[in-house]
Structure formats: C-alpha cells, structure tokens
C-alpha cells in the first residue's frame, strides 16, 4: 500500500518536472534567436561606436566622439529631424484616414462597404517597391494626374515626387491596410448596441466617437501607431525612391554612410541613435499597454 502511494506521488510529480523542462525547451529557441540575432549584434554595434581607435589609428579606447560628431553635425541632425517629422506627419495622416475608415467599415454593411474594404486592404498584398513605382506613374512628373490635367487644359501639379511629401504619401498608402485591420479588430469589441445606446441617450456622431468608441479602441490605436512609427523610423524603400536627396531619412542615410561614404562607425552611430528612438517609443508602448491592462483588471 505504501509503495503504491509512494509511486503514485512520484507519478504525480513527474509531469510537473517534465512539463517544466518542455516549457524551457520551447522557450529556449526564441530566446536563443533573440539573443544571437538581435541582442548580440546590437551590443556589438553599441560597443563599436564607443570603443574607437586613438588619433593615430591604433589602441582602441572608450570614446563618445562618434556621438559628439552626430549631434554636432547639422546634416546628421537635419536627417534625424526629417525622419521624426516624416514619421509624425505620416502617422497623424494615417490615423486621420484609418480611424474614420475603420468605423465606416465596422458599422456599415452592404456592397459599398465591401468594395471600400477591398480597396483599403489591397495595398497589403503589393510590395512597397511596386507601390513606389505606381506612385511615380500616378503623381510623378508626366504621371497620370499630370496627363489628365494637361488634357483638360489645367496646369500641372507640383509633384510630391522627390520632396518630403513623397515618402509621407507612400507610407500612408503602404501602412493603411495593416492599420485598418488592427483598428477593425479593436472596433469588433464595440457592439452596435453600445453605439445605438449612446445615440439613444442623445449623443451625436462626434460625442459617440469621443465618449464611446475612442476609449474602447485606444489600445488598438496605440498598437497600430507603434507598428507604423517603428516601421517608418527605419524605412528605406519609400525614402530612397520617393524622398529628396537631402535631407534624407535615417534609412537611406545609414546605407549611404556605410556603402558610399565608407564610414562604418558613423553608420553604426546613426543606427544606434535610430534604435534608441525606437526603443524609447517601444518603452512608451509597453508602459501604456501595461497601464491599460491594469486599468481593465481593476
């Protein structure tokens, strides 16, 4: 009897131990990937920007000279500023389009809504480089819009191609589908009856949005904005193909500094600065999500 009880206890203990091992094995792979593919290169890059050779080219030592150069160089700061500006303006325009569009798609049914949804989601399946090419064909010099205007006797447009607005339009176009999908997921938690109840007690459309819809989709807006901000900060295709040569966004700036100027230390410094901005936003994002979860749990 005693033996049976003992072996029974051991049997009960075994699944816990094996479960713990299985869990650790399952976690080990992604942790190893993050460590080798992300943390290690980031650490190396940061170390490379802080451990520089002396003035005679020998004897590496700790130095912040590369950062001193970046933050005192007008061109570098201009590029950082245009990156922040493009990201902020693109995100604001994107939200201004995506939020009303998502609300329309959530609360309207029928063929028109289905067509709008298909059109809004379509760019998700088109590579960025194709979108950039389409942009040039439509809004570029001698593009479709220009040709139409010329044919009806109107003056040509001031093309946003190769201006700061080129990447902004490209980003908005490219990021609209994912943003709409994320916001629609958030809006699925807002029931039609909750909106109708608000209108029933006297809320107009704006009051309903402000007091009923917005508080419920705040986390979704934050998630969507985070994807957009983090993606835009390190974007390359649109700024390279549609943006101005100078100032340039951090993506093309890094590539050019590394490949054309052949200054890997300064390229890494630019990368670390870009990473620190993204990390700061990531910290804000995680903190907001955690605060929201705490609020929901109370």
């Amino acid at each position: 009897m005693t033996d049976t009880a003992t072996s029974g206890g051991a049997a009960t203990g075994r699944p816990d131990a094996s479960g713990r091992v299985t869990g650790l094995i399952l976690v080990a792979l992604p942790v190893a990937m993050v460590m080798t593919m992300i943390v290690w290169p980031i650490g190396l890059a940061i170390l490379d920007t802080l451990w520089l050779p002396g003035p005679d080219g020998t004897g590496a030592r700790f130095s912040v000279a590369s950062y001193r150069f970046f933050f005192s160089d007008g061109y570098s700061l201009g590029n950082l500023w245009i990156t922040i500006w493009t990201t902020a303006v693109s995100t604001a325009i994107l939200m201004a389009i995506a939020i009303p569009l998502s609300i329309y798609l959530r609360f309207r049914t029928g063929r028109a809504a289905a067509v709008v949804q298909a059109l809004a989601i379509f760019p998700l399946f088109v590579p960025s480089i194709i979108l950039a090419y389409a942009f040039v064909r439509v809004l570029g010099p001698n593009g479709m819009v220009d040709i139409i205007l010329a044919n009806i006797g109107l003056p040509r447009i001031r093309s946003p191609y190769l201006t700061v607005w080129g990447p902004v339009i490209g980003f908005v176009w490219d990021n609209l589908p994912l943003t709409v999908v994320i916001l629609l997921a958030g809006l699925s938690g807002v029931s039609t009856q909750a909106v109708e109840a608000a209108r029933d007690v006297g809320a107009g459309r704006i009051a309903t949005f402000r007091h009923i819809i917005l508080p419920r989709i705040g986390p979704s807006i934050l998630v969507a904005a985070s994807f957009v901000v983090l993606g835009l900060f390190s974007a390359f295709t649109f700024p390279y193909l549609l943006g101005p040569a100078a100032p340039e966004m951090m993506g093309p700036f890094m590539q050019r500094t590394f490949g054309d100027v052949l200054d890997p230390v300064q390229a890494r410094t630019q990368a670390v600065v870009t990473f620190l901005f993204c990390a700061a936003f990531g910290w804000f994002y995680v903190r907001s999500i955690a605060a929201n979860r705490r609020r929901m749990a109370r």
Partner: peptide
C-alpha cells in the same frame, strides 16, 4: 429624426452598458 432627437429611450436585449 435621428435617435438622439427623439423623445424615446430604448432598452436593448444585451443591456448595452458601456464597460469603460
């Protein structure tokens, strides 16, 4: 008239309370 301008009030099947 839209709902917000009618002298009516509705109780819904799912109570439709605002959880926030």
């Amino acid at each position: 008239l839209p709902p917000e301008r009618r002298p009516t009030s509705m109780m819904f099947q799912s109570h439709a309370l605002w959880s926030h």
